[in-house]
Nucleic acid binder design. Sequence first.
RNA 1: UGGGGAUUCGCCAAGUCGGUAAGGCAACGGACUUUGACUCCGUCAUUCGCAGGUUCGAGUCCUGCAUCCCCAG
Length: 370
Amino acid sequence: MNQMLDKKKVVVGMSGGVDSTAAAYLLKQQGYDVIGVTMKLWEPDDPDYVEKEGGCCSLSSVNDARRVAEKIGIPFYVLNFREIFKKTVIDYFVEDYKAGRTPNPCIACNKYVKFDALLKKAHELGAYYVATGHYAKVEYNEATDRYLVKKSEEARKDQTYAIYNLTQDQLKHVLMPLGEFHSKDEVRAIAASFDASVGGKGDSQEICFIPDDNYPRFLSENIAEPIPEGNFVDTDGKIIGKHKGIIHYTVGQRKGLNLALGHPAYVTEIRANINEVVIGRNEEVFSEGLIADAVNFMPFDTLTEPMEVYAKIRYSAPLAKAIVTPLENGRIQVMFPEQKQRAITPGQAVVFYDGDYMIGGATIISAIKA
RNA sequence: UGGGGAUUCGCCAAGUCGGUAAGGCAACGGACUUUGACUCCGUCAUUCGCAGGUUCGAGUCCUGCAUCCCCAG
């Protein structure tokens, strides 16, 4: 069936924001047969809900997207992805928090919704490609017959971290026209050139399905069981306070602990099994390595021997030299020989770089302390 | 109901010979942010357990009361 797909045809996920608008426009300019699609992902309960835009993880402003599509002169559809979004993003998000992890819903959304469910829809429409407004570059290497991902020229907006787990088959069908831009301002100018109101929008910030940024509210509404309070303990196991429920915390967190210890206190570890949150000093939130699974590499399928890379353990963490070593059952160990990393957090992704290339990543299971 | 020591912001804690309330933590607000992370900036006691007194002026001196702690009953 694949051979029936039209390589000049592309479905663009349009949120009505700056980035996806510019992406759709650019593809049209490049001569693609562009179809605009807005995905319905989440039905807010609140009727006064204000929709957000932009970035990779945005809810849609259907009206803006439709208007923009009309101006560009492309067909436009609104598709319902609520069910798949609930199953692959929301449920995962909730389960991770219940388990004391800190999930990254944008990564799941990319993997299962934008570059899977939407891609399948694109194929149904006869389109070979799906395109988004991500700041990243996808590149085909003939010698190795692999699709590689390169960092965006706009370093500040680079989003390669959030697509570390895309498969070769997904990458083959992906276009990211914003990867070549050196600044968001250029992109904004393009969007603004034919639609002032879209061009003037700000960047997205919060997770799209929690627009008020109130995680505890969202989580307690989506978790059937009550969320039990528990103890804060120090690194020696001494009880030093009461926590409001594990979902309120992430490793490295300082705010909201309400612990006046005389020195800044940080979450060091979350022990979901015994409902404990461990508190320590800043030094105690640093780790020298980690164990991870859900491993994915761009240049090859399986890592067979230790490899030196640069890695980051959070979306906005700095790159650090790292040694990646394959373990049993598909896991990897990542050690940071030069610099301990702050707040290595189960549930977050560790992503690897080799120069400008994002060469893969994995989901952190646990930190390795000295 | 003998003696001694304490009582300053939610917590800890400076406050010299009486001179017109440091700081840390927490909290709150803002910036940054695809993580309520980190970080950064800003705001946080007209008032010092209470009531009087002495002083131009008292958290700092005096008197009484209250509460807490320690040692003796």
